[in-house]
Design a protein around this nucleic acid. Structure first.
Lengths: 108, 108
DNA sequence: GTCATATATCCCTTGACAAGAATATTCTCA
DNA sequence: TGAGAATATTCTTGTCAAGGGATATATGAC
């Protein structure tokens, strides 16, 4: 129900599926075979990945070719960028915070 | 139990906590106040974030100042990099895959 | 010591979710 | 049309995790 891209990838088997699809589009059966998973579980995981917008499906005969979508990865990258100062600024802000606290009135 | 950084961030309230800490270290009470969460839940979430290596705690008197850690974000960035060709190569590999399957010439 | 503040942990209930098994659906082709 | 292949869905069950409430622990002030 609540299917955000992040929580979709957080599940270990879905992570494996995503990493497999990183190398190119694959049909369900091949995914199941390579990852040693049962077909129904793979279909269910793909359904969730699809609802999260992480993959898109292309029907070819009876096969369904699943393909990664770029957007959620771009978005995740953008979100990560907002943390860039975390590792770029050598001086962390802890000392700064502690300094601020010194000026505040003491609890009673 | 299985506490990976990704699954830790995937939880909505923990995501909010992480985004709050992005602006700087904060004690538990302030996090609870700003996010309108109850203190025990915040402590529990912080515990999980801490087990996942996302935050570090600095005791100051009775307060515990929580601070984001850079490493997991760097790691996530590195992992995300492995998907870069996804959105850099405008030509996706779907046609290529279909061609392999059918043995047909690429449609024009 | 006692009290107040700040945070952590414990117990409990409830809901979400993943796997398994069986079945349903969709498509191709003879 | 029927058969077989490829995939999707339904139902059930067990597990895990989040929230609520109460309580425990730690620190500082008096």
């Amino acid at each position: 129900m609540l299917t955000t891209p992040l929580s979709a990838i957080a599940e270990p088997n879905r992570m494996r599926i995503v990493e497999l699809l990183r190398d190119g589009p694959r049909p369900v059966g091949e995914i199941a075979g390579r990852l040693r998973l049962r077909q129904p579980q793979v279909s269910k995981h793909l359904r969730i990945l699809r609802d999260a917008g992480l993959v898109k499906v292309h029907p070819v005969a009876q096969k369904r070719i699943y393909q990664l979508q770029a957007k959620p990865f771009k978005d995740l990258g953008s979100w990560l960028e907002t943390f860039r100062r975390l590792w770029e600024s050598r001086l962390d802000t802890l000392d700064e915070y502690l300094q601020d606290m010194k000026g505040e009135p003491k609890p009673r």
